[in-house]
Nucleic acid binder design. Structure first.
Lengths: 189, 189
DNA sequence: TCCTTCTCTTGACAAAAATCAAGAAGTTAT
DNA sequence: ATAACTTCTTGATTTTTGTCAAGAGAAGGA
């Protein structure tokens, strides 16, 4: 079983035949550090699984830059607004380190749904999962203090804090780098 | 064309045959003011379109209560964590006023996907839409001040502020009722 | 290797928002 | 209609978080 097949099956039960067929639609793609997967304003017409490396989803505002999300292995990389609704992206997606992806283009993507019925179900569950994750984030931002949000992320992905510049994680947590730095200092004691 | 068919078709292009067939799977449901659609801890096994009235999605914490979302006509009502993943709900869903819904139960729901292929696509786009909405909310909470978040919601749904107790909207916007009250006072001048 | 650049930390201060408390206004039930 | 509740507003104060500025440390390029 290939790495991609493992990703797909690790999320949801899919018949083995379909698994191979689905995986065959995806092509390997390299992304060098600093390279863009997507630039703000473009319409995203690809969907990828991230195999290795890290990506950063961020929005450039006049006054500041907001990191929305750090993409880690075994997750989707795409902009749903582009892929589904043909809208230009607000956020850019850039490689924080060299990345290996498995990518499918929109035209193949539509065939996938027609030829392999289980793909629809798979994808639906995948998106639903993304939605519930976002729901959690909204809840955290509504209900938790900066310190509690830090503890939540650190509890889920302690490794991220060694791999990703802290300023990006601070932004993703809705606080300034200074505040994150102070919270981390406090955690030591 | 029934009201439900109109809701469905207003979102996405679906063949007319399928539209009627899909709509037939849904049953009308009444919800009295204060009545619960779902209580925290239950596993949600229904999906509804909201036809009239308002619903409130909220989480009860030991110290406080957090309103996650106000459900308005023409939107989904459900807990995806329950419907897709069989997990108990963190949030309760309660009618703020008398509501009319169109509801489908999980068992019929699975048939729907098997018998009417376009439903999968429709639903996928619907969930994707919910996801991008949540993405916007996360972005707003990360990037905007309390005042900007108020203006955003007021710009989208000015009517809500006359229908929903302000304390719930304040919570949904990630601020206290006092802060919302002061922001609204400031907007008058 | 040295120099530049980027990242993180720290302190002093400012701003935003939360908390506490009281009272006004509006609803609901009897 | 009145009493009991709930909701909203306002002021005073505290807490949290952001801003500005400086410097230490680490990473990367010539």
């Amino acid at each position: 079983m290939t790495a991609l097949e493992q990703y797909i099956s690790s999320f949801f039960g899919v018949p083995d035949n379909d698994l191979t067929a689905i995986a065959n639609y995806f092509q390997p793609q390299q992304l060098r550090k600093q390279e863009y997967y997507l630039k703000a304003g473009q319409v995203c017409d690809t969907l990828s699984f991230q195999h290795s490396g890290l990506t950063r989803f961020f929005v450039q505002l006049p006054e500041k830059e907001v990191t929305q999300w750090i993409g880690t292995p075994a997750y989707f990389v795409t902009d749903l607004n582009g892929l589904f609704f043909g809208k230009p992206a607000r956020c850019s997606i850039q490689a924080l380190e060299d990345c290996e992806l498995f990518t499918i283009h929109r035209k193949d993507y539509q065939q996938l749904g027609e030829k392999i019925p289980s793909w629809h179900e798979l994808e639906k569950r995948f998106i639903a999962r993304c939605f519930t994750y976002m729901e959690d984030r909204v809840f955290n931002l509504l209900a938790m203090s900066a310190e509690q949000r830090y503890q939540w992320l650190f509890g889920m992905h302690p490794g991220l804090f060694n791999q990703v510049p802290l300023q990006y994680l601070a932004s993703m947590l809705g606080m300034t780098p200074e505040t994150l730095s102070r919270i981390r200092k406090k955690q030591l004691s």
